[in-house]
Structures are given as C-alpha cells and as structure tokens.
Amino acid sequence: MADVSVVILNYNGEKLLQKFLPSVVKYSAEATVWVADNGSTDASVSLLEREFPSVRVVTLDRNYGFCRGYNEALRRIKADVYVLLNSDVMVTQDWLVPILRLLESRDDIDAVQPKILSYKEPEKFEYAGAGGGLLDPLGYPFCRGRILNRIEYDHGQYDDEREVFWSSGACMAIRASTYWTHGGLDEDFFAHMEEIDLCWKIQRAGKKVFYTGTSVVYHLGAGTLNYASPRKTFLNFRNNMTVLLKHLDGGEMWWKIPLRIGLDWLAAFSFLLSGKPAHCVAVFKAHAAVTSGLSAILRRRRALRTAYPRYSRKNIYRGLMLLKYFFGRRNDYLKPQ
C-alpha cells in the first residue's frame, strides 16, 4: 500500500483548523495528516500541539505563499502520494478510498480530484473545482458544475469517474514522483491557477488527471483570500495569461494571445461599468506584470517544450466557455429539484 500524506498548508488559520481539521483526522486513517504552517503569527501551532497531537507539523520560517509554501513543506515530507488539502475543507467518511484506488490501479493516472461541494450550501457545487476542471480552446478554465459565477445544484449528475483537464488545488491527490518530476508548483504564480499549470504538465508527459464523484468533500472557499478581492482578480488574470504563454503551441500563440488580451480588457471595462474600479485596475496591473516578467516566462516555456514538445487536445473542451455562459441553454441543474 502506498505511503500517503495529507498536507494542509496553513497561514493564520487557527479558526479554520479548529473547525475543519477534526474531520480530516477522523476520516483519514489511510494517511498521515500534516499541517505545514506558513509562518503564522496567530496561535495555529500551539492549537495543533494542544488539540491535535496526532497531526504532524512542518513549521516554515515565513509566509512563502501557496506555491512555494507547499514546495518548501513537501521537500520535508517523504511519501508516495501527497494529498494537497485546503485548511477550509471538511472531508467525509472513506473520502480517500476511491482516490487511492484509482492511483493504485491505474499507472497512467497521476492526479485525482474528488467531488467538491460547498460547505455553506451543501446542495451546490463549490466554485473551486466542483465536478472536475476543464479548459476551453481560448484557455478559460471552468468546471463541470460551475461556469464563471453560475453554480449548479448537485443532483448526482457528476457522480462518475472520468478524465478531466485539471484538478483543484483545494483537494488534489498527486503522486510524489510526478510532483517533483515537474518541479512542484511554479513559485512565480504565488497562488491561483498553479494547479492548472501542473496538470497541463502532467498531460504533456502523457499521463492523466482524473475526477471521482464517489469521493466527496465540502469546501468553504475563500478561506484565505476572498473571492471579491482585487488581489484575487490580479492573480487570476496574471496567472491565466502566464499559463497560456507557457503551454500554447507556437501556431496558437499568434492569434490566441492577442484575442485573450482584448477579451481581458473587455472584462476590465465590465468591472468598471459594474462599479468595481479596483478590479478593473487589477486586470491592467496583471497584464503589466506579465509584460515585465515575459523573459522569465519564455525561458520556462522553452524548458517545458524541450522536455515535452507537444500536448494533446483530447481534453480541451470543444466549444467556447463564454458562448456557453452567455448564450447556451440554461442548465436544469441550476435550480433546485
């Protein structure tokens, strides 16, 4: 049996740990539970020592952000499988069983995500991951069960097991060897969309990312960075463009990048018209950050394409996410039954 470590990255999350860690300890008998403390200044570490003696702790000297924080912590943890789990996730009985079954029975699967439902509205999917991540031809990420801010009710429509494009970083099991083969999470991202970059690398290497609807967790969401934060908007727009610059083939770059720039600017002006000027500014700051860091991004692109020259379009969604959102037939799963 594989040596499995569930690893929760924590930064000043004392209250979240107190609320959500008990379910992880109770229902993760197949794994060693770790908390990697990312330089917290609250009482997180003393809480762990006092109330969760079975949980192992990695203490980092400062807040390294999500990506580097995980990389620093996982270097100190020996395991065959890492399960990256947000501190605001409640797990359920036997949640690890179907995830580990897929990894142990299929050598071609390198990462697995469970069904992620909303902790606040458990009858609905949760924004970050839902029923498995997809990517459209223009590089817009979305999920089965969630397109932009439109979120479906869970009626068992995604209780399947299938290949997806990306697994949510809120709850992702990944082979440790795969994680380090691809250099861990790209630390230049800091946070957000780093899991899409990693899952794209997995597919470039000829392996698969899977979703299983037979494992269920409940995610609070925005536990460390609110969905309405301009900082989150900045990271999402900057990192989405960075992912595309790293991974798109040369023949796609010349038209998809200019088109995406134009669409991002439309999104910025939409923010402005809807009374969210800080989010409008965040989009332009994101593009400025990509421009200033372009040489480094292109170096990573060259290294990636040297190792894995092409990627399969098999798991790219056949259709445009924006058209589906604005003009597609309304999904029956958007209303309760």
Rank of each mutant, 00 (worst) to 15 (best):
T32K: 01
N10D: 15
Y11H: 12
L47G: 07
L47Q: 12
A36I: 00
A36G: 05
Y27C: 11
R62E: 11
L48G: 14
E51I: 02
S54C: 12
K26G: 06
F20R: 10
Y27V: 08
G13T: 08
N12G: 10
G13Y: 03
F20T: 14
S40Q: 07
K19Y: 03
E49G: 13
V7P: 08
S40K: 09
F52L: 12
I8D: 01
Y27E: 07
A31Q: 02
V25Y: 11
V57G: 04
G39Q: 12
V24Y: 04
T41K: 15
L17D: 03
A29I: 00
L21M: 05
T59G: 10
G39R: 09
N10T: 13
L21W: 00
A43V: 08
S44E: 12
S23F: 03
V24L: 00
S28L: 02
G13K: 04
R56V: 00
T41G: 14
G39E: 08
G13W: 03
Q18G: 11
N63Y: 14
P53I: 10
G13V: 10
S28F: 01
K26R: 14
G39N: 11
R62L: 00
K19S: 12
P22I: 09
Y27K: 09
V33I: 13
G13N: 06
R62H: 10
V33Y: 06
L47D: 10
E51K: 07
V33W: 05
S44R: 14
N63V: 02
N12W: 02
L48S: 14
G39K: 12
Y27F: 15
S54L: 13
K19A: 13
P22R: 11
L17S: 01
K15S: 11
A31E: 02
P53W: 04
R50H: 14
D37Q: 05
F20W: 14
G13C: 09
Y27L: 07
S28G: 11
A43H: 15
V24G: 04
Y11L: 03
F52D: 05
S40W: 06
A29H: 06
S54A: 15
T32H: 01
S44Q: 15
V24S: 09
V57H: 09
L47K: 11
V35L: 08
L16A: 12
K19R: 15
D42F: 08
A43F: 05
A31I: 03
V35S: 05
A36L: 02
V33L: 09
L47H: 11
A43Y: 10
S23T: 13
E14D: 04
D37T: 01
G39Y: 04
I8V: 13
T41E: 07
A29Y: 00
E14N: 10
Q18M: 09
S46Y: 00
